[in-house]
């Protein structure tokens, strides 16, 4: 039991961080970022390059992932989403653009990093063992703690910094925020950069444990979508709740349902559908966003 909870928390922290980025972008620009999983993969490869190729410390790699992804995110917002949002009449347009960007990032990752599974050496050795009731390698604990710290940092930033407050105003009511003098273009770009950065950071964190490969992008996006559907799209608390709930469900599923084969995700999806039938807006979302 303790083991399941601990695994769920560990997974949930990673997931919540991914979902936070996705929901931030969604709330600011009403864009569903299909390329989120690819950004996560890119982040993993950047850390891999710095740590395994250049031999630099892990923390440098992680910072590099954050910076690279923030820049990539900002560029994508400024040169791709902004003009398309300005000219398009239907919400499918941004969805298609996002799908195109997902393909594009896949292609870039394939060309630059190849399709092999990559990983970096363990950053801490040893295993925490509490009487065989709870066993967890120290590096997982460290990564989990770092992820939770990032979540807390993000919340504090959104809550107390000037930029964070402006973004929250923008997310709540675009028109009103504009009237209050919030520079919509500027904060959309910052928000997109921040969302991409979060995805990159998770990639950097997980490359030490699960490694990274090209094929992980799509499934990661899918999981992120599930999380924000559980929690409610565009709501920060919802993303965090969704992340932890999915992490917990996965952890429980993997240990309880294992005897029936690998049907965890089928069960989770069925549960999600029943849940959405009663609460289409998710746990904390507003109806229809």
């Amino acid at each position: 039991m303790e083991q399941i909870l601990a695994n769920g928390l560990y997974l949930g922290a990673q997931y919540a961080l991914i979902a936070l980025g996705l929901t931030l972008i969604f709330s600011l620009m009403n864009v569903l970022n299909f390329a989120h999983g690819q950004m996560y993969v890119l982040g993993g490869f950047v850390t891999y390059t710095f740590v395994a190729q250049f031999g630099l410390p892990f923390i440098v790699g992680l910072l590099a992932s954050a910076v690279v992804l923030a820049v990539v995110g900002a560029l994508i917002e400024k040169f791709l989403f902004r003009p398309v949002i300005r000219k398009s009449k239907r919400e499918e347009s941004t969805m298609l653009l996002a799908a195109g960007i997902a393909f594009f990032l896949d292609a870039v990752i394939l060309l630059v990093f190849g399709e092999k599974q990559r990983g970096v050496p363990k950053i801490v050795n040893g295993v925490f063992n509490w009487d065989f009731r709870l066993i967890m390698p120290y590096d997982r604990i460290l990564i989990g703690v770092l992820a939770i710290a990032a979540i807390v940092g993000f919340i504090l930033y959104m809550q107390y910094s000037r930029t964070g407050r402006a973004m929250r105003a923008l997310a709540q009511d675009r028109v009103a925020a504009q009237l209050m003098g919030v520079d919509v273009d500027r904060y959309s770009m910052i928000g997109f950069a921040l969302g991409a950065m979060l995805a990159g950071v998770v990639g950097g964190l997980l490359v030490t444990i699960t490694g990274i490969n090209l094929g992980m992008g799509g499934p990661t996006s899918i999981k992120a979508f599930m999380m924000i559907m559980i929690g409610g799209a565009g709501v920060i608390s919802g993303a965090i709740a969704g992340g932890f709930i999915l992490g917990m469900m996965e952890s429980i599923g993997l240990s309880v349902l294992a005897v029936y084969g690998d049907i965890t995700y089928l069960v989770i999806f069925a549960t999600l559908m029943i849940f959405l039938a009663f609460r289409p807006q998710g746990l904390m979302g507003k109806p229809w966003g």
């Binding site: 791709l80 003009p83 398309v84 000219k87 398009s88 009449k89 239907r90 347009s93 298609l96 653009l97 799908a99 195109g100 960007i101 393909f103 594009f104 896949d106 292609a107 870039v108 394939l110 060309l111």
Partner: peptide, 17 residues
């Protein structure tokens, strides 16, 4: 894939509808 996706993105920029 690179050319295909670039063409797609370019298309969206040129005719977003």
């Amino acid at each position: 894939l690179l050319i295909y996706s670039s063409a797609m993105i370019a298309l969206m920029l040129a005719v977003p509808n």
